[in-house]
Structure formats: structure tokens, C-alpha cells
């Protein structure tokens, strides 16, 4: 069974592996250059205040080189790979056998249907995880210094293309493809459904899962009126509301609100000085004074960058659990319901 699986799977496996090896080689060749740039712009080993400008000049230097677009290509590949593997490896696996009738050849040999599917899932899913893991982990290492300069490694979109989460996602996408093929029995339909389901998961997972798993931190501090903020006043009710743009390096900000000393969100009848004036010249001093007198605080809920690996493992665990559940369903289906 292992031989047959390998024989049927080797062409798609080797063609994908070849493309990925080119990408990995490109990352390997530019690795030293990225480190050099980090050193020459002074980002490596920078201290406190100097870091921000050093990071800016480092990122500017990187973006003008090959590494600049390679960064985006590699992120694109890691994000697209699970969908592609689900469509081209997973969906045809059972659907093609059911569609062309060859299932009647293989299922009447001395191999049970469940064993047939189990071997195919293990080898195909393992290969999908391995290929994606290779690219993702190399990219995570290669882009580590860039991520540090950007301070956005924990940001959901970047987070999805780093570490071990793509591995679990590829395994899940593969099993989604196989299951769609089993249920629909037609290759093209299974591919289309796999595309829709995996793409929807890829949008939904970063939106939902980190919020559930991250255990965000909340910090409350006095509102700094010298930092940029936005004041909005409802013209009919005269109700004032302050928006802030919390900027925190290496953190994923879930929410930032302005609260009063009681902890409730600040909404109050605006001082006449804060109403929009004819000259549109920004806040008047009187308005600032009024705001300062309100004793406002900013309340920021965020996930610190230091949680990166803990969150990676949690998300990995959830996705792998879903993958195993779906695999179990496919194994049950092929035994009990396929006939």
C-alpha cells in the first residue's frame, strides 16, 4: 500500500518540492545579505531610543534589494501553500478514484478501504506538513530580524505565515480536500469546494482563533494629550468621544479605548469650546483644558510579542485537533457510508 501511494503521489510531490526548494535556496542565498544590512544600518545591537530610526533605515535598505520582494513572495507562498495542497493533492486523492472507477480495482484487492485511506492520509498529509513546515520555518528564521524591526510578528496576518501554524494549516487543508473528494466523488467539484472552504478558514482563523487563545493583556494609563488623538462630537446630541491610535511595538493591539476614572468608556456632553469652529483650526486651548480636566485614561488590550510561541503552539494544537477529527470522519465515511 505504501508503494502504491508513493507511486501515485510521487509526481505531484516532486513537482511541488522542486518549486519550494527553489524558494528555500533563494532565502538561503539572501540570508547573509539581510544580516549584513541589519549590521550596516546599525539595527543589530542598537540601544533603546536609537532602535526606531535604525529599524526604519534597515527596512528601507532591505526593501530596495532582492530580499525586499522575496519577503513578500515567501509570505505569499506560505499563505497560499495550504490552499494549493488541499486543491491539488487532497481533493483528487479519493475523488479521482471514485470518478474513474479505479476504486473498484483497489478496493477489491486484499486491502481494506479504511487502511487504504489511512495510508494515503498519513503519507499525503505528512508530505503536506513537511513541505509547508520546511518553507515556513526557513522563512521564520530568515525574516526574524525583519520581523523584529517591523515589530509585527504577532500580527495575525504575519503570524499565519510564521512558525508551526502553517504546518497544521496545510495538514488541515489536505484533509479538507480528501474529505470533499470522498463526499462529492467528483474531482473538479471537490477542488472548488476545497478552495472555498480553505480560503474561508484562512480568513476566519486569524480573525477568531488568536482572540480566543491569546489571553490578551490589558493596560490602563493616563491619557497623554500630547500624543495624537481624535475627538469626535455628535452634532445633534453634543456628545464627545475620544479615539486614540495606540502604537505599541511588537504587540498585536485588539482594542484601544479611552475611559473615565470609573472605568467606563468616555462619553460626555462636550464643552462648547470643543464644538467644531468656523476656522477648522484644530482644538482650541480651552477644549484641551476641558479634556485634561476630565481625568481620562487610555485602556489598551493587546497581545505582547513575547506570547508568539505560546500562541503558535496553541493555534497549532487546535488546528491539528480539527484535522484529526476530520480524518476520523473520513475514515468512518469510507467504511460505513461510501457504499
Amino acid at each position: 500500500m505504501i508503494w502504491l501511494t508513493w507511486r501515485q503521489f510521487r509526481a505531484p510531490l516532486l513537482s511541488v518540492a522542486a518549486v519550494l526548494l527553489v524558494l528555500v535556496a533563494a532565502l538561503a542565498f539572501t540570508w547573509a545579505r539581510v544580516s549584513d544590512l541589519a549590521g550596516s544600518t546599525g539595527f543589530t545591537g542598537c540601544r533603546a531610543a536609537a532602535c526606531e530610526t535604525a529599524a526604519q533605515s534597515f527596512l528601507a535598505a532591505v526593501s530596495s534589494e532582492t530580499a525586499g520582494w522575496l519577503y513578500y513572495v515567501a509570505i505569499g507562498v506560505v499563505l497560499a501553500l495550504p490552499v494549493l495542497l488541499g486543491i491539488f493533492w487532497g481533493a483528487p486523492l479519493a475523488a479521482r478514484e471514485l470518478e474513474t472507477g479505479t476504486y473498484r480495482l483497489i478496493f477489491t484487492q486484499s486491502v481494506s478501504r479504511r487502511r487504504w485511506l489511512l495510508v494515503k492520509l498519513l503519507i499525503g498529509g505528512g508530505a503536506a506538513a513537511l513541505c509547508t513546515g520546511l518553507v515556513s520555518l526557513v522563512l521564520t528564521g530568515w525574516a526574524a530580524v525583519i520581523d523584529e524591526a517591523e515589530g509585527n510578528r504577532i500580527n495575525p496576518l504575519i503570524f499565519m505565515a510564521r512558525g508551526i501554524v502553517p504546518i497544521a494549516f496545510a495538514a488541515l487543508a489536505f484533509v479538507v480536500g480528501v474529505t470533499a473528494g470522498l463526499l462529492l466523488r467528483r474531482t473538479v467539484a471537490a477542488m472548488a469546494v476545497t478552495l472555498l472552504v480553505v480560503a474561508a478558514l484562512q480568513v476566519a482563523v486569524p480573525l477568531v482563533l488568536p482572540r480566543l487563545l491569546a489571553q490578551p493583556v490589558t493596560s490602563v494609563a493616563a491619557l497623554d494629550l500630547n500624543a495624537p488623538f481624535g475627538l469626535s462630537v455628535d452634532l445633534s446630541t453634543k456628545e464627545a468621544h475620544v479615539d486614540i491610535d495606540a502604537d505599541m511595538p511588537d504587540a498585536w493591539i485588539l482594542s484601544a479605548t479611552v475611559v473615565t476614572s470609573s472605568g467606563a468608556e468616555f462619553r460626555a456632553r462636550a464643552d462648547p469650546a470643543c464644538l467644531p469652529s468656523e476656522d477648522m483650526g484644530g482644538f482650541s486651548e480651552a477644549c484641551r483644558t476641558w479634556l485634561a480636566a476630565q481625568n481620562l485614561r487610555q485602556k489598551v488590550t493587546y497581545v505582547p510579542g513575547s506570547r508568539f510561541w505560546a500562541l503558535q503552539w496553541r493555534e497549532f494544537g487546535v488546528l491539528i485537533a480539527v484535522t484529526l477529527g476530520l480524518s476520523w470522519f473520513a475514515l468512518w465515511w469510507i467504511r460505513r457510508r461510501l457504499t
Binding site: T100, G101, T102, R104, T108, S110, S112, R113
Partner: peptide, 15 residues
């Protein structure tokens, strides 16, 4: 299915 005791050649003989 998968019994070693029974062989089957389907209509249109899939290979």
C-alpha cells in the same frame, strides 16, 4: 471489500 478470498473484475475493467 478487501477480502483476499474474493477477486473482482468490474465492468469496463478499470486500471
Amino acid at each position: 471489500s478487501g477480502s483476499p478470498r474474493v477477486g473482482f473484475v468490474a465492468q469496463d475493467t478499470p486500471v
